[in-house]
Amino acid sequence: MGKVKIKKKSTLIDMTAMSDVTVLLLTFFMLTSTFLAKEPVTVITPSSVSEIKVPVSNVASVLVSPEGKVFLSVLGEADLDTYDESWSSEGVRKAALREASKRYEELTGTKTNITEMDLEKFAKIGSFGVPLAKMHEFLQLDQSKQDEWLGDTSRKDNGIPMVDINYMEGDAPAVTNEFQIWMRAIRDKAGNENLTSAMKKGEGIAVKADRNTNYETIHGVLDNLQTIKMNRFTVMTALKTEND
């Protein structure tokens, strides 16, 4: 009886080609990627046929959560070859906080206790939205605690307050609020002229809100922008076609 010999076949597959492809893909993704900016609340923007892209530099974004809490983030000059260091996102944020806190102290008489250290920390923060009076406390926390604070919408001290601050403008009584103080500080005193002009033209202000949020909530924010003569701005949308 002759035994039938079964030839043993090697099951090794050459993975070199596969590896090549994956490395190529990986390189592609690494080079083209821009990371999602971390935001305290996730919103789904409504879609529109507008094809204007969101600017990557010199823009102040106003994020409105469905509950009506307001968060801000500021981007300065991205290309710093021709500009001063103070025109960068970090520089702009520092100047804005310094100015906003100064103005807030002037108007309310409450101390914000913001130190140079706080300014340094603030420069690294993407989105922010706490009352100025609590900013010092906020900046003392570590990152995860800060995110928790911003993400917890049930907190009272979450979001930039739009509570009236009454003060005397010369002899006449005037009203403002922290949101207006912030927006004014960013537009006028942040030390970046490109940002100032972009905000005046309207392309430097981006309002981002969820598609389901009711108009009453957003109207509050738009009304504030109108009050400080920021009548022109952009809203963030997703792309859709005309037939939808």
Partner: peptide
């Protein structure tokens, strides 16, 4: 983690 499509903007003037 990437955003391939950048979101769009719509200009508004009040």
């Amino acid at each position: 983690c990437t955003t391939m499509i950048k979101s769009q903007t719509l200009n508004i003037s009040l």
